[in-house]
Design a protein around this nucleic acid. Structure first.
Ligand SMILES: [Mn+2]
Ligand SMILES: [Mn+2]
Ligand SMILES: [Zn+2]
Ligand SMILES: [Zn+2]
Lengths: 145, 145
DNA sequence: CACTCTATGCAACTTGGTTGCATTAATGGG
DNA sequence: CCCATTAATGCAACCAAGTTGCATAGAGTG
């Protein structure tokens, strides 16, 4: 296994109250090296040769998300994609944030912008109480033009 | 079958280049009388006693959407919900628009607001070309507070 | 090192949705 | 009004994503 920085990954798990196991190390290794959010099947492919059980992978991603190590976002074809909250040398993205969806390659990028600062002018319909907002920008990513 | 306005429904189908069939009349009847977007299973329940085949229902919803009679929006649990573009005595909503998601009952309402007209302050990341936007407001709907 | 409790792996299942194909029925022309 | 054409329907079989139950393996703690 080629791990970017084994002790960094181990710390990341521990900081989030997660036991350090082989499966979690493998999955985390894949996630830290991806600039885009990944699906269960994306991750399975990137683990080829050293795959883990599919249920374990679902549960690993669930645990990561519950402990706020990752967050999930629904893809165009409606399955979950997972992305780290924290990227090395970047500020943590632990608040609600917008996403960029590439309409060509379908990759989804997290945009490190706090939605608080970018509230657009959608008039609140009467009798509806708005508590939060979701934004997605669509277009072409740098890889696709 | 209790149809609100049989000839109105028939016209709606014809205006959108759709053959008038029993299955389509039934489904359209359900859709015109719903203020919220409905899933395949929602519609099946509302058709109880006079259900149509599940594949036919999928294909009916697909045809409606292709012909721009309806549009679809992904729900929180990531299955498709369908809503009419046109509601009686209301202007057609054939542009991109925002949606309101009730976090209590999970219903999704179409907001008759053109997203083009909303110019939010989401800074476009460098090297990304933004062509369209998606907005969702979350909170509580009138039925839930 | 031994104990405990969580994480893992496997099988079986559920739900949403699709495909192929034979049959039925809507529509337009005569 | 009827017939032919063509599209819509129904059924069975299938697929992919995700979940549940349960027995076993393996972290972490002392
Ligand atoms: Mn994100
Ligand atoms: Mn809508
Ligand atoms: Zn792209
Ligand atoms: Zn509600």
């Amino acid at each position: 296994m080629i791990m970017k920085n084994e002790s960094y990954l181990r710390e990341l798990l521990q900081e989030h109250g997660l036991k350090v196991t082989l499966a979690r190390m493998k999955v985390l290794d894949v996630l830290v090296s991806s600039p885009v959010a990944l699906s269960h099947s994306d991750i399975t492919h990137r683990l080829e040769g050293q795959e883990i059980d599919k249920v374990t992978l679902y549960r690993t991603l669930g645990a990561f998300t519950e402990k706020k190590l990752t967050h999930k976002v629904a893809s165009k074809d409606r399955n979950w994609l997972y992305a780290l909250h924290i990227h090395e040398n970047e500020p943590a993205v632990d608040h609600d944030h917008a996403h960029f969806v590439c309409d060509s390659c379908e990759k989804i990028y997290c945009l490190p912008v706090n939605t608080e600062e970018q509230t657009p002018v959608i008039p609140t319909p009467v009798n509806f109480i708005v508590t939060s907002r979701e934004y997605r920008l669509h277009g072409m990513c740098p890889d696709c033009h």
